[in-house]
Design a protein around this nucleic acid. Structure first.
Length: 566
RNA sequence: GGCCCUAUCGUCUAGUGGUUAGGACAUUGGGUUUUCAUCCCAAAAACCGGGAUUCGACUUCCCGUGGGGCCGCCA
């Protein structure tokens, strides 16, 4: 179907040329704006329901800021009874990286961010407002670019990259405002004849929006995060269709978010200065702009200054980093929630067991930050807390899953000794007392538990001089033998404890630290020193979990063997 | 160069004209624990500078300064 009407109808010949130009600009474009409008009817939702999206470009790994934006948008949508979708913004074919889109979908799923519409893990699409990949929507953009050209709101531009560069440096020299506007916009008022001539010469072209704004006038809008904002109007004739026929971000955003029914756009504040442009674009197409919310970027400290997390330089910018280190996606999510709304922390304290999904997210708290610094120590604290709340089974299961990907040896150990491993993780866990809190991330586990396994333990030469300074080898042996003699695997904790105290006494040690402190001259040391001998012999280190539980976990054979190991 | 955002303990922040400026993480000290990890208690720790408005400014306004961003046929 051909576009039917032109409002420039001063003479037929002129119309003929215009029609020819438009046909040359948009060859074989069969759909009309009406058809597109009909294909994507407004969504049938409550007025308060928010439709949000995350729109990453597949140019590499998934950035932590992308998860931040996705989390924020998803919660906003679902907590209002709305819809959250993912749109892949793959209009820059030069920067596109193979498999990156898949990585995005994967990451969202790993972070438990449910997506209502968009590409799925299997590569299909769900939802009625697709395609959800911009490269597949080329004709939709072109249809509306053509409409703008027909209405004299857009025009072809034949300026070369070199010419534009030259223009910019001229503007810099003159201290003029930089951009394609006013008298600088050379192609803006090209006659139809000249356009046709350039087209005949097969000059490459882009389509530029013909702005009617003025940088002398100001426009106001309400940002959901930053509040009331005032900026100069846009007066730049920005490119809407590139010479490869694909749209720029600005145009794709406006067209897609209109037809996909997005009500709330939450994005990084690097977009803030484009808002006047975007609103002008929406209005010139006769559409209602969405609400906008702009959040500051996550930063990191370099020397004394903050800077945005860099994709290239900072491993922690990549969400995969957190997986590799063994942070739970739940802990990372809760860390981000805290950044989104610091009230989360208090909420979590009051609702220790509740799913973080139930935390009512608010945007206002995001204002007033210039961009938070990523705090790994705090993340570790949150992850530690998360792991401490897990049962031994869950620890084993999650740790095994992690090790399968990142630590082959550990994985084998856990897999070959499931019951023993579970016993190890049960130490000081699941009882009456608050759980042991010594695993900050899964990559810590290996060091934490390796002495339980004989092959690794054997390799560790125990340096008695260093670990038990002030104790002679003879004395160590004496204490070890005593331990061996009192050891009975049938004993419960209390019995064992009193046996150790008696043993300490008979060896010339105080049976409590207090007694020792009182009369230091009377004793060689106290019960703790005696226990330390056993600890070192059994674990090869001075710091370990509760001794009785370690002994109980290791089993009689192993304990006897290790106590003799001197 | 132009435009925009932003500024409270080391870090994340609460705070919307009158507060002993609160919390969390980190730090330090103490207590419990047979080491460690916990747990409990405590301490130290902040309003970028200058003006203006006001009886009174962390809070409002202006000017600096610092930090961040945008001004692409990148998103």
């Amino acid at each position: 179907m051909k576009p039917k009407k032109f409002h420039n109808h001063k003479n037929g010949n002129k119309n003929g040329i215009r029609m020819q130009i438009i046909e040359r600009l948009f060859p074989n474009l069969e759909i009309t704006p009406e058809e597109v409008e009909n294909k994507y009817p407004p969504r049938d939702l409550e007025a308060s329901a928010k439709v949000t999206r995350v729109a990453p470009s597949p140019t590499g790994f998934m950035h932590i800021g992308g998860i931040f934006a996705a989390l924020l948008s998803e919660r906003l949508a679902h907590q209002s009874g709305g819809v959250f979708f993912v749109r892949i913004e793959d209009t820059d074919k030069k920067r596109e990286v193979e498999g990156a889109a898949q990585l995005i979908i994967d990451s969202l799923s790993r972070f438990n961010i449910p997506v209502d519409e968009g590409e799925t893990l299997t590569g299909e699409e769900k939802g009625n407002y697709g395609p959800y990949r911009q490269s597949k929507r080329e004709n939709i953009y072109k249809t509306f670019a053509r409409k703008l050209v027909q209405e004299d709101r857009a025009y072809p531009c034949f300026c070369t990259v070199e010419e534009l560069k030259e223009m910019t440096s001229q503007q810099e020299k003159n201290k003029s405002k930089i951009g394609y506007y006013g008298d600088w916009a050379k192609c803006r008022d090209k006659s139809d004849e000249d356009v046709l001539k350039a087209l005949d010469e097969r000059k490459p072209f882009v389509i530029r929006f013909k702005s009617s704004g003025s940088c002398k006038k100001r426009m106001e809008f309400e940002d959901m995060i930053k509040g009331k904002l005032s900026m100069p109007e846009n007066d730049n004739d920005i490119v809407i269709i590139k010479s490869d026929g694909l749209p720029t971000y600005h145009f794709a955003h406006v067209v897609d978010d209109h037809f996909m029914g997005t009500t709330d756009v939450v994005r990084g504040d690097e977009w803030l200065s484009s808002v006047p442009l975007h609103i002008e674009l929406f209005r010139s197409l006769g559409w209602k702009p969405p609400r906008y919310g702009h959040f500051p970027p996550i930063q990191k400290l370099e020397g004394h200054s903050k800077r945005k997390l860099s994709k290239r330089k900072d491993p922690e910018a990549n969400v995969l980093f957190y997986d590799e280190e063994g942070y739970s996606s739940i802990a990372v999510t809760e860390y981000l929630l805290n950044l989104i709304d610091s009230d989360f922390e208090n909420w979590r304290k009051q609702n220790p067991q509740t799913d973080n999904r139930d935390f009512p997210i608010r945007l206002e708290h995001l204002a007033g930050s210039a961009g938070p610094l990523l705090d790994m120590v705090k993340l570790q604290d949150i992850n530690k807390d998360y792991i401490s709340k897990l049962s031994a089974e869950e620890v084993l299961e999650q740790c095994t899953t992690w090790a399968e990907k990142y630590d082959e040896d550990l994985f084998r150990k856990l897999k070959e000794n499931p019951d023993y491993s579970k016993r190890i993780f049960s130490i000081e866990r699941g009882g009456e007392l608050p759980p042991r809190k010594d695993i900050a991330k899964w990559s810590d586990v290996r060091h934490q538990i390796e002495y339980f396994f004989d092959d690794i333990f054997k390799a560790a030469d125990i340096d008695f001089k260093k670990l038990l300074p002030g104790m002679t080898k003879v004395e160590i042996k004496r204490v070890a033998e005593k331990f061996l003699s009192i050891y009975d695997e049938q004993d419960d904790k209390t019995t064992w404890f009193s046996k150790v105290k008696d043993a300490a006494k008979s060896l010339g040690y105080a049976d409590s630290a207090k007694a020792f402190k009182k009369e230091k001259d009377k004793y060689k040391g106290h019960v703790g020193d005696v226990a330390m001998v056993a600890r070192v012999l059994l674990t090869g280190r001075t710091q370990a979990p509760e001794l009785f539980e370690v002994i109980h976990c290791m089993g009689a054979d192993r304990v006897r063997k290790r106590l003799k190991n001197i």
